[in-house]
Design a protein around this nucleic acid. Structure first.
Length: 612
RNA sequence: GCCCCGUUAGUCUAGCGGUCAGGACACGGCCCUCUCAAGGCUGGGACAGGAGUUCAAUUCUCCUACGGGGCACCA
């Protein structure tokens, strides 16, 4: 039972042969809607081909389970005779995300496996949130984990430009095509009206979607209004009856009622395309054969299919990967997990370990004996990658296992290699000089360097006995110190996080401004508040100048630490444990001391533990 | 609320009608050992529930429950 992808000519059954009645995989009920007159018959051979593969196809299977399409089990991923072209399309809004590396890994490996190309495209159609800084950070981080792309904004290629913000005219021209053939229309509805419609629909417990107010507008009249400068968007004219079946390569046919699907905005009033339009146009123009993306896109695929149909194009093969999860199984988020690749890089995770770990999320490899192979590199992974073997349950991103794998790689090095890697990791860090400058005054001997520089080179921190400083003012020696309770301290840290998150420029003065502004809102003394932040960020009550330190530690890491402090403070039990531990520790020390001095042990007072 | 996807131990997974339900992380015990790791041995721990199909269901079908995602002029 072969699991290998085979070219078109393989011997598996065709959908027609199996199913008897055959209709195209999407829009199974063709609408009578005359407006959308786009071609579709040209696609048929391709579609047949897509359907002619199923996972481990065996005729006997079909006999025992004459399970008619479309409830077909997942099929093996079809690989056409044309070269495989895949892509990732990250949006440059914020820190480079582990999810990007995850999807990138599977795309890149799939391309390598089939001798195709892997393309990086930047989806920066959201003017408000996209930044160049974020874009270069994405390049850097993806390079860091070892991903290389054949085409992209930084390396060029025959299908450029690879930045959507540089392709506006292309999208506009294509939207005009749809306007011309009637599969799209102009909409002049205001945001307020749309919101009212949605609220109304929700109150009536219906799916919130556009109500088609501008659907019937006369096109020439609408064009004139647009020309006169009236703000408008372009919407897709979605078929209003029948069903659309999405052929997902891992799930089989996923069927949607067309009435559930919105008349999606294609061109925003700023003239830029939405993701949906840009993505379909680019994938087609760039010759993408397989769209391997996250599951969160599954529900919008019917819209994409409708677009391919409106243009008369052949859609690619769709593969929706499971979503990486937090420990509570929700979609991975920075609130509950470090999600920034920069965090892992600075925490000393090896890129090859990160990639290896990511490959284990939803995928597994076995040796001849049937035992799992846990440690493997990109090339090995790609060599026998079979997308149809991906398991669909959302894998929890487990830091413990990541650390274990990282240790595997570290132990596999020769001591000389490890020394070399470690020294390079410290030395080539672009912050090395910055950190040295901060630590310099506190280093009487070189040997002290590591102690003081430690917090700059770690990921999350272990607060231990210093945890008490996290309660603002509680460890203060000031005479009239305001001691803030747990909840208030946590709220304070939440505010600090919000302030730091909103910073466009990550610099000491900017950080100082945020901290001072936040401190102004709490009753505690400035110094006491700063101390709490210092311990949260540096792990100790003694550190180099705070603002500079925060700047040097870096946004991703600082925010992870602050969020962990919030989580810690949200768990009173953990705090009580810390307090109890402190008291015990103190008592033990005193007893030991007393014993050593030959005097009876003195009962210690709880207040000596530092919390009042 | 509506739609879609998913469900094997705390976690990552194997399994594609008949298995003592396999491996890994984590956890416990023992060994090694000056400590801590690492390593070796070992232990506990899972098919969400209910119907149905079948001689036989973890595996196929349906229902329920639970988890997740989507429902934007964000991607």
């Amino acid at each position: 039972m072969s699991r290998t992808c085979r070219p078109t000519g393989s011997t598996t059954l065709t959908a027609a042969a199996r199913g008897g009645t055959f209709s195209p995989p999407y829009c199974r009920t063709r609408g009578q809607d005359g407006a959308g007159g786009a071609v579709s018959t040209a696609r048929l051979p391709r579609i047949l081909m897509l359907l002619s593969f199923r996972r481990g196809a065996a005729v006997s299977d079909r006999r025992t389970h004459p399970n008619p399409w479309p409830h077909e089990a997942a099929m093996a991923i079809p690989v056409p005779a044309t070269p495989v072209r895949v892509r990732i399309a990250p949006s440059p809004t914020g820190d480079p995300h582990v999810g990007t590396a995850y999807i990138g890994l599977f795309n890149a490996a799939f391309a390598l496996r089939h001798g195709g190309q892997f393309i990086l495209r930047i989806e920066d159609t959201d003017q408000k949130r996209s930044t160049r800084q974020s874009e270069t950070a994405i390049f850097d981080s993806l390079h860091w984990v070892g991903l290389r792309w054949d085409e992209g904004p930084d390396v060029g290629g025959p299908c450029g430009p690879y930045r959507q913000s540089e392709r506006s005219s292309i999208y506009l021209a294509h939207s005009q095509l749809l306007l011309d053939n009637g599969t799209a229309y102009r909409c002049f509805c205001t945001a307020e009206r749309l919101e009212a419609v949605r609220a109304d629909q929700r109150s009536r417990k219906e799916t919130a979607r556009y109500d088609g107010f501008c659907r019937g507008l006369d096109p020439t009249h609408a064009d004139r209004r647009a020309q006169q400068g009236e703000a408008c968007v372009v919407r897709l004219r979605m078929r209003q009856e029948g069903e659309t079946a999405v052929p997902d390569a891992l799930r089989g046919q996923v069927v949607y009622d067309n009435r559930q699907i919105d008349d999606q905005v294609l061109i925003k009033s700023d003239g830029l395309p939405t993701y949906h339009l840009a993505n379909v146009v680019d994938d087609h123009l760039m010759g993408i054969t397989h769209v391997i993306r996250a599951e969160e896109w599954l529900n919008s695929t019917p819209k994409h299919l409708a677009l391919y149909e409106a243009f008369g194009w052949t859609p690619p093969v769709f593969v929706h990967m499971p979503l990486l999860r937090n420990a509570d199984k929700s979609k991975i988020s920075k609130r509950k997990n470090p999600t920034s690749l920069q965090y892992y890089q600075r925490a000393g995770i090896l890129p090859e370990a990160m990639l290896n770990f990511l490959a284990l999320m939803g995928y597994s490899r076995k040796d001849e004996a049937g035992a799992d192979i846990e440690k493997f590199g990109f090339a090995e992974f790609a060599a026998d990658l079979e997308l149809s073997r991906i398991s669909l349950g959302g894998p929890v991103f487990d830091l413990e296992k990541l650390r274990w794998i990282n240790g595997l790689y570290i132990r596999a090095m020769t001591p000389a290699e490890l020394a070399d890697r470690a020294v390079r990791w410290f030395g080539q860090d672009d912050r090395a000089a910055e950190i040295a400058a901060l630590v310099q005054e506190r280093v009487p001997e070189l040997g002290d360097y590591m102690h003081h520089a430690g917090p700059f080179y770690r990921g999350s921190l272990d607060y231990g006995a210093n945890a008490r400083y996290l309660l603002v003012g509680c460890a203060s020696r000031k005479k009239y110190a305001v001691r803030m309770p747990i909840a208030a301290s946590r709220a304070f840290f939440e505010d600090v996080i919000a302030g730091l998150e909103s910073l466009t420029e990550w610099s000491a003065p900017a950080i100082e401004a945020v901290l001072r502004a936040t401190l102004a809102t709490i009753p505690a003394a400035i110094g006491d508040g700063m101390m709490a932040v210092r311990v949260a960020v540096c792990g100790r009550p003694a550190s180099p100048p705070l603002f500079e330190s925060i700047a040097a530690i870096g946004r991703a890491t600082v925010l992870v630490r602050l969020r962990e402090v919030c989580n810690l403070l949200a768990e009173p039990r953990a705090l009580a444990d810390i307090a109890a531990g402190l008291r015990q520790e103190l008592q033990a020390t005193e007893s030991a001391l007393a014993a050593a001095l030959g005097a009876p042990a003195v009962a210690s007072s709880p207040s000596a533990a530092g919390s009042t």
